[in-house]
Amino acid sequence: MSQQEDKKLVLEVKNVSAGYRDGGFAGHGGTYHEVLHDVSFNVRHGEILGLVGESGTGKSTLARVILGLLKPEQGEVIHYTPRPQIIFQDPYSSLNPTYSAWWSVEEPLRIFGKYDEKERKRRVGDMLRKVELPEECYEAKPEELSGGQRQRVSIAAALIRRPRFIIADEPVSALDVTIQAQILKLLRSLRDELDLSYLFISHDLNVVYQLCDRVLVMKAGRIVEQGTIEEVYNHPKEDYTKRLLEASK
């Protein structure tokens, strides 16, 4: 245990509570609905941490808080790596339909503005090879790509500025099973090659079992159980975890 704790952290989430307001006027007043209650966990360097739970338990809200898109009411989020990035669930709608694959992957570098055109070209070409997108797809618009190809483009765009920590929000849920396996394999090999750490959000316990090192189980905005995959899957402590595992068999 102490060995694991010695490992460098990439993310620390401390006692975070967060939620949404509805009603009210211009963002003030209204009723506060708390979604996350006192959530704490760490992501360690080089690991793939799974986050499982039924839909509506606050997994995506947690992702928004970690990325700074939603301010927590209480607690804090500490990033130990610069430029965390996210891969979204639906590759069909998360790419701008009017731009090519190459354009979407190059965009973060253009915004960053530090590289000239030649260097951008080198980096984009390099990254598209890493995610194994066929060369004939480079100039294709999202409409002309398959779901798996689109997700490869999204992954490349997320990785192009070399982040060290990635949130993957249900990245394979919209894909069919054989494509799922390919993308999971890609995510794992990219982790090794580019020295990444992931927070992998999923409602699919089988996918988490295939990919992750550790897992958090979330229920109604609280983390009810966490541990290594073996601990949680073989010796679940909580009834909720047992029921989830039972349901996924």
């Binding site: 701008n96 339909p97 915004i111 765009a157």
Partner: peptide, 20 residues
């Protein structure tokens, strides 16, 4: 739309999301 969310997460600000 979802692609706007992606664009923001890739580093666009409000103005460049609108324009590009």
């Amino acid at each position: 739309k979802a692609y706007v969310r992606t664009a923001i997460s890739r580093g666009n600000d409000r103005r460049s999301v609108l324009v590009t």
